[in-house]
Every structure is written in structure tokens, then in C-alpha cells.
Nucleic acid binder design. Structure first.
Lengths: 283, 283
DNA sequence: ACACTTAATGTAGTAATATTACAACTTTTT
DNA sequence: AAAAAGTTGTAATATTACTACATTAAGTGT
């Protein structure tokens, strides 16, 4: 809780001298955080231990700790909170809100992601003969992006939008293949079927989906992301960003596992793109 | 300015030992603010004066003053700094770093985006007869995602991966069409050509690209995002996320402009998906 | 109103924390 | 290879915060 509010609230519980300290701090907190206990004591016309006792009464470890709390209270910038867009919001508001709620969702996703599973998935991917990425609807573009990333690694990668192609591809899979299925809800029927087919052919199935979903049950490994989706908008937003970030993480883990020489290769891929681009002016 | 960002920026100007201190602080700022100079020195495996010199280099009065700044930065809600993944990082480190640098990039993007342009683009989109989204490589999946979003709005939307299809589509465009071209660098030749073709046919061309790029020059309107790309990895990561967030913003602006009745329609689109999904158990 | 109890405050000493001066060492330059 | 510039650590010093205890003030019952 904000310590400035706390001072105001507890004011009645303070003793006479302590209240003098409170007054001085509330009056000019900016000066307070840059003062030593001695200076502040003089300003409040009390002794140093009184200031110290004042700090302790506010559940801080002592004067330096109190200053830290105070500093944080003063820097009351808007922390990232998932705020929903409202009917009457103008461009400025909704732009800000969407950026902030996206960041907030990433923070939540970060805390929910299981590092161990990440590591195991990276393991699997590095050992795979062939990697497939499938998703439908909003998750299709995530799979698409994964294709783009892993393609650079010079590993056989497969991506289809067409569910029949996805099916056929899975039917032809074997135990050296890894199939990554992406779905926020984990309830898309045809994707669950694909998971089943892939497993029937001994492929390893990794799900980027919500845990305990029908899809999750069909997977060998599940990377679940607990992202609060903004349902007001009726379209997937934050979940997709979190999924993409997870793809970035897997791709990064992949390159790290492959070692330094491999990254040389990546640079080469990037360099071959140069021909299709306008040169950057060197000024 | 945020002191965490400052540390990241000045990193190159630091000496070897100072960088060790920087690492420890960036790695766990929460612990840093609650440590004494001696503890922090030990954690960084340097001497106390080195920590002190580190603080001074960041224009603070000394260690206590530095802690104050740090505390404020943390309270600001922006504890996210773009930190590069290192060779020896384990899953825990790179996962954390990628999430954090993605968030940091979004923060930078947020500050760089021009609200006025956003508003004008939303204007254009709502009035368009047909909207096209084109991108190549990593930006293809962003265009793909845009398709998925705008398709729900019951507006004619076009998206092609094939550059010949993109060309043909633009040749058939007219003054009621809006073509959105996505490219981080803005230097992809064929995309610049497409922009040219579209304009020659009187379509309005919107670029989601970096400003002053060849592509930007061909566009009627440019939505530029200044995102620091992690070039160590040789693959686009943060830029893409920022672009997607921008798509979310445009889509949101679009629905808001269309008003409440329109959002009913969106809900209907979502409901029609239900048939393809497993019902959620209501428990 | 007085002695007694309890709480509040300050003084002085002590502990902790941070800073400075300088020397040893490393790297860069000539 | 020597000199210079820069970096880092050691040890002494200064600053700052904290503790124990003494003193004063306020409250309570007789």
C-alpha cells in the first residue's frame, strides 16, 4: 500500500512528536527522501530516534527502508493494469489501454509459464527430424510465424492452413517428428483430432494451449499460458501475443542449444535476404 | 529518465567490473534496492568502491541516492529492460529476458506511436470498400493476423502471401481501397513496388514500417514504430509483436467507430465458431 | 495535590554503511 | 618496451543510522 496514504491514515495513532515528523514528510516528501535522518529530525524539531521510531511504526525496517517506500510512492506512474477499452474512448485512450493491457498480459503469462516444460520442448525440437506447426483461426498466424522462425534453422518445418493438409501431414508422421499445436481455448475439434492422429503415428505432440482442455489431454507435453483474454472485444488479442512470445522463447532456446556455429548459419540466412532489399544509406 | 533503461543504454560505456554490477542489478533489482553496498559488491564479485563508482557514473550522488532512483524506477511500472540473451543462459534466464525485453519494446513502441496517424488510419479503414494486408517474411504472419481480425468485421479483406497475387490485387484496386503494407525495415523491394502500383491505381496506401524508409516514401500514411530490434538473434522478434499490437489497436479503433450495433455482429461471428469447438464443461 | 505508573522523548555511545585517498594492477598507446 | 591512461582493490575515514539507557512528561488512583 502507498506509504503516504498510510501516514495520513495512521496519523491519529501517532504521538505528538511523531505527528511533527509526519507533517514535515507529508509537506514535502521530495525533500524528505533526500535527507538524512539527522536533517529530518532537525526539520521536524525532534530527536533522531523519534524519526526512527516513526519509521518502524509504519512497518518499515528503519529509516533507509522507509525512504525506499516513500520513493516508490512518489513515483506513482501508472503501473500496467489490464484496463478494458470503453465505449467512449478516443484514439489516445484505447491506444494506451491496449499497449498496457498487452504488457500486463505478458507479465501474467511470464509468471504462469513452466520453465521445465519449456526446456523439455526445446529438447524435443532440437532432436526432431521434422517439426510441424498447426493452428486455426487466430492461432494460424502464430503457427505461420513459427514457420518463419524455424525455417531459418535449416530444419524441415511444416505448416498448413488447410485442415485436410494438416491431417495428411500428421498421418505421415513418425516417432522422430514433433507436432506443435496452437490453440488458445484448446477446444477446436479438428485440432484435437489432429493431435490424436499424430500420436497414433508415434509423433510427439506439443500443445501451446490452456491446461486441462481437450487438446491438452491429447498432447505429450503442454505449454500452458494463463492469459486473461479481453472478452469484451470478441477477438483474441493478448493470448496471441503471449503465444508468439513463447514461440520466440522456443526459437531462442533452440539456437542456444545448437551452439555458436549454428548462429553463424542464421546470420548467413539473414544476409541472403539482402538481395531482395534496398540498401540502407550509410549516413 | 528510468534508471534501469539508463543502465542498459550506458552498458557499453561501463568497465568490466561495472558491467558485473549492472548485470546483478538488472537481474534482480528488487534485491538490489534492499541490499547494502557491501552485499551488492559481494554479489557482483567486485569491491565496494566499484559499486560506488558505478552509481556515480549514472549521475547519482552515491549508492543511497542510486537506490532511491532505482526504487522509483521499479515503482513506475516499467521494470522491463531490453536485455540480450547470452550464450550461457539457461531456460530460466532466456525465458525471463525474452518476456522482459518484449515488454520493454512495447513500452518504447507505445511512446513512439503517433496517435493522430492512428486516428486517420482508422478513419480510412472504416470508409474503405476493400482492405488489403500484405507483408513478406516475418511480416507475413502479421498481415495474416490482420486478415483474421478484420475478416470478423464483415468487410472485404484481402491477404496474399504470393507476391504475384499481391501485385495483381493492387493492380485491380481503386480509390475506395486501402492497402496496408507491413515491413519492419521498409526496404523489401517487392513490397515497395506494390506500394507504387497501388498508388498508381489511386488506392490509399498505409505503411506499418519504419519512417524515412523507401516504403514509407511510397505511402500515403505511415504508422512508424521505433522498436529496438534484438539483432544478436538474427530474427525479428520484438518488432513483430509491436506490429501486432498496432493491428489490435486499429481493429479496436475500427469497432469503436462502428458503434455498439456493430459489436453485436462481432459477437455473432464468435458464436458461429462454437459449432467447431468442444463445449466448455460448466463446472 | 501527591506519589506512582506508564508512555514518550532525548542523549550519548555503538554499529552499520558509505565514501575517500592511495596503491597495485591492467590495458592501451607511442 | 616503456610510458601513460585507465581500472580495481585495500585500508582508513566520514557519514549515517541504530540501541541502550536516562530523563522528562502525561496519566492514574488515593
Amino acid at each position: 500500500m502507498n506509504i503516504l496514504e498510510k501516514i495520513t491514515q495512521n496519523k491519529s495513532a501517532f504521538s505528538k512528536s511523531e505527528r511533527k515528523v509526519a507533517e514535515v514528510i507529508l509537506d514535502n516528501p521530495q525533500i524528505a527522501i533526500h535527507s538524512s535522518i539527522a536533517t529530518l529530525a532537525k526539520m521536524s524539531d525532534v530527536s533522531e530516534p523519534t524519526v526512527n521510531r516513526f519509521c518502524r511504526r509504519l512497518d518499515t525496517k528503519g529509516f533507509p527502508d522507509f525512504k525506499l517506500h516513500l520513493a516508490q510512492s512518489l513515483a506513482n506512474g501508472t503501473p500496467y493494469v489490464n484496463r478494458h477499452v470503453e465505449e467512449h474512448d478516443g484514439p489516445e485512450e484505447y491506444t494506451k489501454k491496449i499497449f498496457e493491457s498487452t504488457m500486463a498480459s505478458l507479465e501474467v503469462a511470464r509468471q504462469s509459464v513452466d520453465i521445465n516444460t519449456v526446456n523439455r520442448v526445446v529438447d524435443l525440437l532440437t532432436q526432431a527430424q521434422k517439426i510441424s506447426f498447426f493452428g486455426l483461426g487466430a492461432s494460424a498466424s502464430v503457427a505461420h510465424d513459427a514457420l518463419n522462425k524455424f525455417f531459418r534453422f535449416n530444419v524441415p518445418v511444416v505448416y498448413f492452413e488447410d485442415i485436410l493438409m494438416q491431417r495428411m501431414s500428421c498421418m505421415n508422421s513418425n516417432e522422430d517428428d514433433v507436432v506443435v499445436l496452437i490453440s488458445h481455448t484448446g477446444r477446436t475439434k479438428s485440432l484435437v483430432e489432429i493431435a490424436h492422429i499424430a500420436r497414433a503415428n508415434d509423433a510427439t505432440v506439443v500443445g501451446i494451449t490452456s491446461k486441462d482442455s481437450p487438446l491438452a489431454k491429447e498432447c505429450n507435453l503442454v505449454l500452458s499460458l494463463e492469459v486473461p483474454e479481453d472478452t469484451d472485444m470478441y477477438m483474441p488479442m493478448a493470448s496471441r501475443i503471449a503465444q508468439l512470445t513463447l514461440i520466440d522463447i522456443l526459437a531462442t532456446g533452440f539456437t542456444l542449444r545448437r551452439g555458436g556455429k549454428f548462429r553463424e548459419n542464421l546470420k548467413r540466412v539473414k544476409d541472403t535476404l539482402r538481395g531482395s532489399r534496398f540498401e540502407k544509406r550509410t549516413d
